[in-house]
């Protein structure tokens, strides 16, 4: 009886994922292995070799952005989990606040701020300094990724940290751990599930983004997302677009698989299994 109840509860999601996940994926695969006339063809797959560079810089940019995000988020989440409840609530609100605004609007705002005549350059000039070029540089794109996806790193790490029983920390101190050892032997391993979730939630959207690179990169930096968008929107080459998407998907799946191998050893508590 329990089984049938579960099946019933699962039904809406099963239907949803069939229509909106399985079928579209199937269509992507079909497009990737056909030509414009709909005949079976390896043309698009073979054409992929010209885009290796885009895959590479996408991986590189999103890796750098993920590492920077982690470096900022981890100590913040840890420190936050040690403060009193009221501070935690307010701080988490502030972390989430930018997410109430649309990604496009946030990115447009940064375009304005980082523009040649933007606030920062005006400030530099009033200080008598030469204006700097931000837009179109790799730094601006990575900054955009870090800025937009930072909450997704903070949230899961903070969740595992806040859940951690303080008596565990006391037990570790009691058994001879100084501050660093408490972190290395207890807090780090216990926070790994949160870290893994955070990395996944920042890396995946970073590696496939096209909007951030387009706007903050001034169109000079072609990530794989931009390439796919260009094939689909501008060049109307759905077959090559689908092939590129397919490879990106495989890439993400492989990354997640590697990440979860790490997660296996560190118990439960993360947001992504």
């Amino acid at each position: 009886m329990k089984k049938s109840t579960n099946a019933l509860l699962n039904a809406p999601y099963a239907v949803w994922s069939a229509i909106f996940v399985v079928v579209p994926l199937f269509i992507v695969v079909v497009y990737a292995f056909t030509d414009a006339e709909g005949h079976f063809s390896f043309d698009s797959i073979l054409a992929l070799k010209d885009y290796g560079h885009n895959f590479l810089i996408s991986l590189l940019y999103s890796l750098v952005a993920t590492v920077i995000t982690l470096i900022i988020a981890y100590p913040f989440a840890y420190a936050l989990s040690k403060t009193n409840e009221k501070t935690q609530r307010i701080q988490m609100m502030l972390v989430m606040l930018p997410m109430w605004m649309n990604l496009l609007i946030r990115t447009y705002s940064w375009m304005n701020i980082l523009d040649r005549n933007g606030i920062i350059n005006q400030l530099l000039m009033t200080l008598g300094l030469k204006p700097a070029t931000f837009l179109g540089t790799p730094g601006a794109v990575i900054f955009g990724m870090v800025y937009n996806y930072l909450p997704y790193m903070i949230l899961p790490i903070y969740t595992v940290m806040a859940k951690m029983d303080n008596s565990l920390v006391e037990a570790a101190r009691d058994l001879g751990c100084n501050g660093f050892n408490v972190w290395r032997r207890l807090i780090l391993p216990l926070s790994m599930p949160g870290v893994i979730s955070g990395i996944t939630m920042v890396f995946v959207p970073s590696v496939s983004t096209f909007y951030i690179s387009q706007k903050l990169g001034n169109g000079k930096i072609m990530l794989i997302g931009d390439t796919i968008e260009r094939q689909m929107q501008t060049l109307n080459n759905y077959n090559l677009g689908a092939a590129l998407s397919l490879v990106l998907m495989v890439l993400i799946l492989v990354s997640m698989f590697i990440m979860n191998r790490f997660a296996d050893n560190s118990g439960e508590g993360g947001l992504v299994a």
Binding site: D165, S167, L168, E170, A171, A172, R173, D174, L175, G176, C177, N178, N181, L186, P189, L190, S266, G267
Partner: peptide
């Protein structure tokens, strides 16, 4: 003398065993 340098050990109410 901080806790980690004292020659005492504690058994906690809920044991506080390390789940990892």
């Amino acid at each position: 003398v901080p806790a980690h340098k004292r020659n005492v050990n504690t058994i906690f109410q809920r044991y506080a065993l390390f789940p990892n």
